[in-house]
Amino acid sequence: MNEFAHLVSRPSRQIDYQTFDNRLLAYVLRYEPSFLTCMSCGGCTATCSAGKLTDFNIRRIGLMLRRGQTDKLAAEIDKCMFCGKCSLVCPRDVNIRNVVLLIKKESTRLHAENQKV
């Protein structure tokens, strides 16, 4: 069973805005509205300490979150080392470290909720 089945988005050719699971996105935006202002410049990914060592793209994680493609997201975010360089270079002042923390928190909760069911 997919460990992150609680965040399922149907594999599809299209991004389906009708069906996507926006719980995680709603949670992140509620506590970190600055996430709205990302313009996908990629500065965060370029500077990312983890990204220099492995296939980890913090900007894409944000984009996946915004597009409701959250199935692989929780596993992906675990590679983050929390060093904070991304927040330091962001031209939009997105508090990226908090976005990561919020994703971790809510996906842990959703996961636990799913286990109960």
Binding site: A50, L53, T54, F56, A74, A75, D78, K79, C80, M81, K104, K105, T108, A112
Partner: peptide, 8 residues
């Protein structure tokens, strides 16, 4: 409860 994986 948070996970972290730094195998890399």
């Amino acid at each position: 409860q948070y996970n972290a994986s730094y195998a890399y």
